[in-house]
Amino acid sequence: MSRRNMETPVSLNKSITQRLGGQNIVVLLIVIGLFAFFSAVSPNFRRYSTLLSILDYSYYITLIGIGVTFPLITGGVDLSIGTGLICYSLVGGYMVVYQGWPVWLGMIVCVLCGAIIGLLNGVLIGIMDLTPFLATLCTMMMTRGLGSIFSRGLGIPWPMVGSEGGWFRTIFKLNIGDVRLPLGFLWIVLLVILMSYILNHTKVGRYILAIGSNKEATRLSGVNVKLYTIIAYVISGVFAGLAAIAYSAIFASVYPGTGAGFELEGIGGAIIGGVSMTGGAGSIVGTLLGVFIICILKTGLPFIGLQANWQQIITGVVLITAVIVDLNRQNKGTKSITTARKKQ
C-alpha cells in the first residue's frame, strides 16, 4: 500500500485546460484593469470612438498574432509576417488598382501570397532544417523587397468606401445611419473560435502542440513531423494574408517599406497571452487577449500624456513580465522531470 501512496503524482488535479484557463483569466483581468485605468484617468478615452479606433488598429495585429501562435507553439517563430502583410497588401492592391482586378480577387491574392511565403518558410524549416529565426528573417527581407518592386516604390490606395470595390472596407467597419459598428471584431471572434477548435480538436493542432513539447518523441510515435511543421507556417502565412486585407481596409493607403515591427507586436501579444517561447503550450484566446493589451497600451497611453516611445517601453516591460511568468511555470513543470532524471 505504501508503494502506491508514493506513486501519487506531485500536483493533483491540474488539467491543462485549468492551467491555460488560469493564465487567460489573469490576462483578461489585466485587459479590464487597463480599460478601467485609462477610462478613469482620461475622459476622452471613455468615448465610443476611442474603443472603435482601438479595435480598428487591433485587427491586423490580432490576425498575425493568431497565425504566429502556431509556429510559436512548435517552438519556432515567424518574423516574416509583418513585412509580409504589407507585401501581400501591395501585391493584391496592385492587381486591383492597376490591373483592374475585382476587389474580391485582390483579397484572395493577399491570402494566397501569404500561403506561398508560409509554405516557403515551412519547407526551409521543416525539410531543410534551417533555424526558424534565420529562415523567416530571410523571407522577411524578401517580402519587404518584393512589395516595393510591385508598387514601384509608391503607396497603393485600395478603393475607398463609395468608389467601386470600396465595399470591402465595410467588412471591418459598417456604418448603419449614424451608428458605426466594429464588424471586424465579429470576424475576429469567429476566427478565434475556429482556430481554437483547430488547435485543440484536430490532428493538426494536436501534433503541433506535441512537436513543440517534444519533437523527437512525436517523430518516434510515427507522426510526420515535417508535414505538420510546414502546416504551422502555412497557417501563419495565411493569417498574414488575412491581416493584409484588414490593414488595407483600415488604412487609406499602403506604403512599401513599412510593416517591420508589426510581427513583434503579434509575437509579443501571443507571449503575453501565454504561448510558451519554447513551444508546446498556448491558446488562441490567450493570444487575442495579449494582443489587446498591446493595442490598449498603444492607444491609451497618449490619452494620459505619454507618447509612443513610452508605449514601447511599457510594452517591453509587460513582455518581460509575461516571459518570467512563463519561465516560472515551466520550471515548476520540469522540476519533476529533473528529479526523476537524477534517479538514474
Binding site: 488539467s15 491543462i16 494536436r206 502542440l209 506535441a210 513539447s213 517534444n214 523527437e216 518523441a217 512525436t218 518516434l220 510515435s221 510515427g222 507522426v223 508546446g280 503550450a281 513543470g333 520540469t334 522531470i337 526523476a340 532524471r341
Partner: peptide
C-alpha cells in the same frame, strides 16, 4: 523515456493516442 517516449507537457490521453 523523457527525451524519446513521452510528450511531457501533454495529457495522458493525448500521449496514449499519439501513434
Amino acid at each position: 523515456r523523457k527525451r524519446f517516449g513521452i510528450v511531457v507537457r501533454r495529457t495522458v490521453s493525448e500521449n496514449s493516442t499519439m501513434a
